[in-house]
Nucleic acid binder design. Sequence first.
DNA 1: TTAACAAAACTTGTCAACAAAAATTTCCAC
DNA 2: GTGGAAATTTTTGTTGACAAGTTTTGTTAA
Lengths: 233, 233
Amino acid sequence: MDLDQANNKADDDIDESLIVDRIYNAVIEQRIPPGAKLSEASLCSLFGVGRMRARRSLLILSNSGVVQLENNRGAHIAQPTSEEALAVFEARRAIEPNVARLAAKRIISEDREGLIKHLEQESLANKVGDRQTAIRLSGQFHIKLAEISKNMVMAPMVKELVARTSLIIGIYGAPGTRNCHDDEHQLILDALINHDEDLAASLMDKHLSHIEQQVDLSRRGRKGFNLVEALMN
Amino acid sequence: MDLDQANNKADDDIDESLIVDRIYNAVIEQRIPPGAKLSEASLCSLFGVGRMRARRSLLILSNSGVVQLENNRGAHIAQPTSEEALAVFEARRAIEPNVARLAAKRIISEDREGLIKHLEQESLANKVGDRQTAIRLSGQFHIKLAEISKNMVMAPMVKELVARTSLIIGIYGAPGTRNCHDDEHQLILDALINHDEDLAASLMDKHLSHIEQQVDLSRRGRKGFNLVEALMN
DNA sequence: TTAACAAAACTTGTCAACAAAAATTTCCAC
DNA sequence: GTGGAAATTTTTGTTGACAAGTTTTGTTAA
């Protein structure tokens, strides 16, 4: 009874984390806009679960700042303020260069192959003009890096920050611009392969500052969407 | 209906976050040991809330890694593995030096006075030998720094990491040693007052490595405790 | 037409009862 | 006694009903 506190990956219910993951991904891919209502009923029918599960999922999402819960008013996709947006970028620049450092230290051939494939997809999506895919892969690159860093404490933090960044870009980003330049991702990958920790860190820092430069915190914008279509990928 | 996404501080229920905070603090002060059972019934009677509130609180705590939920087996205070412990320290060394940097940049006189008072209490507790208080203040120093950094994204992260560190020290720490040297805290405060960002960051890094050196990840230990006494401060 | 108010429809919050699983105790054979 | 199985108690998971709140709709008067 003393040793079983290890291997706790996905110990909790499948259903729960599936709902959370779906919404997380939909946010990262910008298929759900900031401010969108997430009613309990819609989650229940969409995922075929009871209200309890829906509520639990929403609570989990609200803990990571992706969903905003209000008393008697239900759940909405968060709408980061400009102050919050600054804080998110600040946090990313504090954390992710160090994540890149660790990734450069710990990357193994398997990781490398995965990243190479990932970048191929990413550059393809950009070439073809598949904006949706490009956005998703672009965010996932950062998440993959966090996984390669093999730090199970920071990885969820990065995931959360990436999702919140998607919301920020959705609100304050210029509609046309790409979120991440895949060539910068390529440079980071090169540094990782060479185990050049300092370079990886500084490239990541520069990269993040470029992302930050693409948002205009005085802008506002909103658009319609379809919840069913957005979640049922 | 577009502007009301600002001022969301403590919008959620009072009850809920009170329970969470109480348990959080009890963990930081090491009044609840790792592995302790947190049954729904005990929380219900202790805080005079219904089961729903208790369950919600436990879910929130489990999202921050302080509580471990297991199917049909309820909630226990987390027992970080040695791998997890390494990851937590790694995360702290990635994040907190940058937090210290920001704090050095943004500290105002009000913050300074608060920290000075805090350090007086801390050094007093150490002099008098009030271990419990010393532990609490020591952890809270780091949390206060995060608040002074005025980054509302990183502050909760630091709080979570401090709590998890308390659990780690509870499991792997030598019983006699202090968690934090208050003289190191004093040095950091000096750097903050001088707005010396680089110094604050490097002192914080050194400080964290000292904390890390105080744990022996091959050690194990447990002790009895009283839940009522632990939570009813 | 519009503003204010009232009513209806809907959504969320809470509770109590029940089902299912785990932990504990009891009991019996050895 | 000891080990192990069965029964009991306790704890957790889930559901449904109802209460409380919010949003929408509809109506009336200025």
